[in-house]
C-alpha cells in the first residue's frame, strides 16, 4: 500500500452556490494539504471569489460540504466565528478599517476575537508588521499608505489570528502594476515560510512560479487542475487552452508564464 496521503487542511466537497437561482458554483471539489499553495485561475465571473467567500464561511452554500482539519464546518454553525478565526482572507479591495491605525487594524482580531490582552495583541501585530516591512507605518492611518502597503497591512491583519489557511481574492487587481510586485513578493515569502494558501489571481507568471497546483475555473466548475508546468505547458481541456490563449494574447506575454 502507498503511504497515506496527508490529511487535507481544508477540503471542499461538491460545493454548490446559487445567486438568484443562477448556479455560480457547480460542484466544486478541492482540497489543500498543509503547506500547499493552490492558485485559482479563470475569467472574471468564473466563481473564484464566490468560492473563496464560501470557503471562508462568509456565505452559506446550497449543497456540498466544507471540512477544516477533517471536521465539517458550515456558515450556519453556532461556532462559525471560531472557524473563521482559523481561516484568513484578503480581499481585492483591502477593506482596511479606516478609523483605526495600521497597528490597530492588525491588533483588533487578536484582542477582540482571540481575547488576547491589549499588550499581547499589540506585540503580535508589531511582529507581523515588522516581518512584512511595515514597522514604520504602524501609527499611520490606512489612507496615508500606498495601495501596495495597504494590501500588505490587510495580509498582516489576516495573519493575526494565526490562520491555518490563507485565502486571497485577486489581491493585486486593484493595484498599479508597480505596486503589484511588492504584494506578490510578500505572498512568495509567505509561501516559502510554509503557509497554506488558496490564491485567486490573474497574475499567471506569479501563479506559475509560486503554486504547487493550478486550478482552472469556468462557469462555476473546476475544469482542470494540475501542476503549473502541466497546466501552462500542456493544458488538456480545450476550455483551458482557449483561456490561456486569450490571456497570452491580451497581456502580450507581459504577465504570461515563461516570460
Amino acid at each position: 500500500m502507498a503511504a497515506p496521503k496527508p490529511a487535507p487542511v481544508i477540503e471542499l466537497k461538491g460545493l454548490k452556490k446559487r445567486y438568484d437561482g443562477r448556479l455560480v458554483l457547480d460542484g466544486i471539489n478541492l482540497s489543500l494539504a498543509e503547506h500547499e499553495v493552490v492558485c485559482l485561475i479563470g475569467a472574471s465571473g468564473s466563481g473564484k471569489s464566490t468560492l473563496l467567500r464560501c470557503a471562508d464561511l462568509l456565505e452559506p452554500i446550497d449543497a456540498g460540504s466544507i471540512h477544516l482539519d477533517g471536521a465539517r464546518v458550515a456558515f450556519e454553525d453556532r461556532d462559525a466565528d471560531e472557524t473563521r478565526r482559523k481561516l484568513g482572507i484578503v480581499f481585492q479591495g483591502f477593506n482596511l478599517f479606516p478609523h483605526l491605525t495600521v497597528l490597530e487594524n492588525v491588533a483588533l482580531a487578536p484582542r477582540v476575537a482571540l481575547s488576547l490582552t491589549p499588550r499581547a495583541a499589540e506585540r503580535r501585530a508589531k511582529e507581523l508588521l515588522k516581518s512584512l516591512g511595515l514597522a514604520e507605518k504602524a501609527r499611520e492611518y490606512p489612507d496615508k499608505l500606498s495601495g501596495g502597503q495597504q494590501q500588505r497591512v490587510a495580509i498582516a491583519r489576516a495573519l493575526a489570528t494565526e490562520p491555518k489557511v490563507l485565502l486571497l481574492d485577486e489581491i493585486t487587481s486593484a493595484l498599479d502594476p508597480v505596486l503589484v510586485a511588492e504584494v506578490l513578493e510578500t505572498l512568495r515569502s509567505l509561501a516559502e515560510s510554509g503557509m497554506t494558501m488558496l490564491i485567486a489571481t490573474h497574475e499567471m507568471a506569479f501563479a506559475a512560479d509560486v503554486a504547487d497546483r493550478i486550478c482552472y475555473l469556468e462557469g462555476g466548475r473546476l475544469v482542470e487542475e494540475g501542476s503549473p508546468k502541466r497546466i501552462f505547458g500542456s493544458p488538456r481541456d480545450p476550455r483551458t487552452k482557449e483561456f490561456l490563449r486569450r490571456v497570452r494574447s491580451i497581456s502580450g506575454g507581459r504577465r504570461g508564464p515563461g516570460r
Partner: peptide
C-alpha cells in the same frame, strides 16, 4: 457592507463587528 464582512472574516461576532468597526465609523 465590506467593512462588516472584513470584520466577520477575522472571526469577530456580529456584535463585535458592530461595536469595533461599524458603529465607530457610523458615529463620526
Amino acid at each position: 457592507p465590506s467593512q462588516e464582512r472584513a470584520a466577520r472574516a477575522l472571526g469577530l461576532t456580529r456584535i463585535q463587528a458592530l461595536r469595533y468597526v461599524v458603529i465607530p465609523q457610523a458615529f463620526r
